[in-house]
Write a protein that binds this DNA or RNA. Structure first.
Lengths: 203, 203, 203, 203
DNA sequence: TATGAATGAGATTTCATTCAT
DNA sequence: AATGAATGAAATCTCATTCAT
């Protein structure tokens, strides 16, 4: 009673915090494996070694759990977008960009499972879906900013940024879904950095 | 499927053939709007102005209808992949590539809705899902082939091809989901051609 | 397709009409036995020898079935209220009133089970509950009208009518719940007529 | 239950006793608002500002709390039934009866909410339900006794008593549910007394 | 004496599929 | 070829009750 007593589920205290974490973790796994709609609450609670009743103590429904998960991921991604380095045509610029691409891949490997489901969510035009759009928008905006600052000429910054973000996102998705071997990871990061640099400063 | 029945002119298709077409069209719409799993047979038959019983006259189940749809799309896409022009550093090469990108966008606008749900299908790792992988594999293979033929050096053809296919696919997806205006279509095609060329022949 | 195609359940045609009737009948029994809230859809479909799926083909939920039932009953009762005879102090008036009381008892025996549940419904202040209030209001209004026309003096028509309607309703309820034997039915009708007449024209 | 524990003045009830009272009061409110079956333990403990665990410290289950409530009410009502005055045709008799009707209304206003749910309880034929029957039986018995003592002739005491008790009970219910305004209270008591007197001694 | 997170049986509801017409 | 009412397995969600703290 000393804490916030907001109506509805989502905020039991102390002891329950672990249970909530277990549910989130189990949810991430099940959503990644089967998609939001096909995921069954039953799978999630089994994964979290708890009961149906407990699930609804913490989340109003399946979608709310997914939303909580998506929020976390969105925060992580936006932080990464903010760290996109300045774009320069020299070797130092290439190295910085390559390092950032590796960070992206590392984060994507961690949260990509949730992100894969965003595409599905976008179809039903709900909050979680819009979240996906917002996040890629953050990357695009950051890249537009860096392109403008770089003085690169001859291309529309908005369209170019969108194409490059598309490439980064989807290539890492391919990496995750097994169209490249794990060993190709560093090579992919280098390639993405190189293509990005060429796109701005190439012939 | 046995071809025209009556001998009259104008190839008067049997009634059943039209029903099947209506179901496919309605299915495409519903799958696009809600995803494969969330799509209800009820929505599809309503969209096709027919009945549940009739649905099962033409398809063994929901997945089979999706599969039929996906087959069509896959065929169209593989034909397009085969037409990918040779890559050269000159203006002619750029123009040919740009034209091809426009063809890609046109096809994507038509069949993209079905393709969007491949991602979801991949999660449940069934035939339709593998189909998606196969199709992008065809694009990647075609691009690897053109890269090798172009004599471009300094990059791993497999990885580079994958990155570029990722860009093309996903950028057109963004175009479809409203992150660019329709007017940006030609500009996007030009940008994709330019980035591809730079990637191979740029600095 | 030849009929009304209103959205939502409730209007399958022809063949289904019998099924709907069976569900209504079974619902009346279960509601009467256990109350609206405690009634389980499972009991209703078992009583109607059909399945859960079928139930939801005809009614959106339990409450909607109850509402349909209540509507029927309300119509019957209001028709009876309209037939309340003129009130006169003579033997003819007594006889007419007694006959009407018998009609009331007969109708109550038929629909009383549903009416008993109105009380419960009133608690949750929904449509069905308001229906109960409306119906008794119809009886009260009819009685106020007859009292005014009778020239009876010395009592407030509104309050007196309400007291008498209360008596009629509740006494028949007692009859139904076994506080009188079935044989007391005619005697109760006579007593209610007598008390009503005395109330208006007595000392 | 065991009486005051500490010897201090002002009968400082033990903490637990207050908790029990709070639960009873909250229960009365929730039962009245939603009915016995639909009442949730959660609503009751929130209303009593205590916890689920505590609820089961004082009551074996939901029904036991309702039973405790009903017992209190039944005792109060039976005491009132015993105080029903002798019935005489004169003004003094009318006045005594009118005063008793006012007492009835006052008590009903206090405990009517609990009584309203007796009807629902009767459906599931449990102890609490039988309690309701018993209580109205006490009123009927008292009235039969007074009718016999009054020497009134020409009506069956059992049936007449039942009709009159029905009227008193239900009319006060209508008063409570807003079909009369509060100001009508005294007028209703007077009318009930008058109708009762007319029924016995009228034409 | 009090707490409230956890439980799971049992209820509601959905929807792919069947089948009599 | 077509229909659409019927089915029931499987999913979601609720809530009385328990129990470790």
């Amino acid at each position: 009673m000393g804490g916030a007593t907001s109506g509805g589920p989502g905020t039991p205290r102390r002891r329950g915090e672990q249970t909530r974490e277990r549910l989130l973790a189990a949810g991430a796994g099940v959503f990644a494996a089967r998609g939001v709609h096909a995921a069954r609450v039953d799978d999630i609670v089994k994964g979290a070694r708890t009961s149906h009743g407990t699930f609804y103590l913490y989340f109003r429904n399946k979608e709310e759990l997914f939303h909580a998960l998506a929020q976390q991921v969105a925060g992580d991604l936006e932080a990464l977008a903010a760290r996109l380095p300045a774009l320069t045509p020299d070797a130092a610029g290439r190295a910085a960009l390559g390092a950032w691409m590796q960070d992206f891949a590392a984060l994507y490997a961690e949260v990509g499972a949730v992100m894969r489901v965003w595409t599905e969510s976008e179809m039903v035009a709900n909050d979680a879906g819009r979240l996906g759009t917002t996040v890629w928008g953050a990357f695009t905006a950051a890249l537009v900013d860096r392109i403008r600052a770089s003085g690169a000429s001859g291309l529309d910054p908005g369209v170019a940024a969108l194409a490059i973000v598309a490439m980064i996102e989807r290539a890492n998705y391919y990496l995750l879904t097994g169209q490249l071997t794990e060993a190709d990871g560093p090579r992919l990061a280098a390639t993405l950095a190189r293509v990005t640099q060429s796109a701005l400063f190439g012939a």
